[in-house]
Computed example of a mutant assay.
Amino acid sequence: MKILVTGGAGFIGSAVCRHLIGETDHSVVNLDKLTYAASLTSLAAIEADPRYRFVKGDICDRAMVRALLDAEAPDVVMHLAAESHVDRSIDGPGAFIQTNIVGTYELLEAVRGYWSSLPAGRREAFRFHHVSTDEVYGDLPLEGGLFTEDTPYAPSSPYSASKAASDHLVMAWHHTYGLPVVLSNCSNNYGPYHFPEKLIPLMILNGLERKPLPVYGRGENVRDWLYVDDHARALELVATRGEPGRSYNIGGRNERSNLAVVEAICDALDRFAPGEGGGSRRALISFVTDRPGHDLRYAIDAGRIETELGWRARETFETGLEKTVRWYLDNEAWWRPIRAERYAGTRLGASSAKV
């Protein structure tokens, strides 16, 4: 198949592109606007492959997207282009409304026009795969419960609200216009090439440099952690074998509190990079003002994709975290320029948004 990936220079998108080119026979067209969190260096391993092509562009430009669809004639569109950081959505929600809601609408309309023009056989086989988040479901209590595909939406942040809106748009285009869509909602991703402002890479790099490790509140918030390469495999299955009109939750079954995650990172750094200064890096942990609307717990029931599509996460949190820490230790040439030019190593979103 030929697959058009939107947002393919981002963290998850680049993992998807690398997987599709490195592990399958599919070809890829990567459409990305190259905003602050995008990095073409994340795609260096596949950039010369004849089955891969990069196109710079904005999903909000419907005419450009339609022209690209007509020129490339993809069999699948995998939509990962999004503003994705909760903290940034608190400080500046407008970009999230524009990209995640308006952008998804413009993309859907471009795709609908393209899909309608296909001959019957190709129109039937075509899929639009919308990649979303478990944060659309809101909050879970610490004592139990899991998000399923039938969990009602209850988003808490501007980010999760914008993703919830885009999910509803995608399903509406299926029910109203017959567009063959599949949808997936994932838990927190981590792994190589992760933008340095997110929790795990921020803590790795701050810890490596023996800088403070700022943890929101008391670090009690729980997330289900999913290694990004496991997620990329799952997304390929959903896009190519998922049932139209159906959603699939993707999680790693690796629940950890934020404090436990940071402590595990400290311990890994102490083993792999003891360096100078001595002492456990746990001493660098500091508790900072919690961000507004911080959901307590997320946890995914991945039973549907495991049963129907045969996917399983290969990495435990321990094996995935070790791979991640080692990757950052070995790839300073990737993260150092990004950290110096685009991100200062602090946390965002701890203060209420200003009008």
Rank of each mutant, 00 (worst) to 15 (best):
I250C: 03
E109M: 15
T41H: 07
E72M: 09
G345L: 10
E306C: 15
A67Y: 02
S156C: 10
G303L: 02
P155I: 11
F11N: 03
G144D: 10
I59L: 12
K211F: 02
N206A: 12
L4F: 01
L169P: 00
A344K: 14
T240Q: 13
I21G: 08
L183P: 00
N331W: 06
D290R: 12
R281P: 08
P93L: 14
S247P: 03
R339G: 00
V28M: 05
H174I: 09
R291E: 04
H129R: 01
L269A: 09
N100C: 11
A71Y: 08
K163D: 10
F272T: 01
R271N: 09
E209H: 10
G275I: 01
G207C: 10
A164V: 04
R282I: 12
G275K: 05
D91F: 03
T24A: 11
G10K: 01
D75W: 01
P180W: 06
M203T: 12
G219W: 07
L80C: 08
G138A: 09
Y190W: 12
F54D: 09
G279I: 06
L213E: 13
D58W: 06
V182C: 09
E341T: 03
A63W: 01
F317G: 15
A232G: 08
V261R: 07
I300V: 15
A45F: 00
I300G: 13
R127Q: 04
A154M: 06
H26V: 14
E109I: 03
A350M: 12
L183N: 00
H79F: 02
I3S: 02
L69C: 01
D150K: 08
R62F: 02
L321M: 08
D267H: 12
F317W: 10
G219K: 10
L69E: 02
V55D: 03
A161Q: 13
G22N: 07
T151F: 06
G252L: 00
F317P: 15
V238N: 05
I305G: 01
A73T: 07
V228C: 14
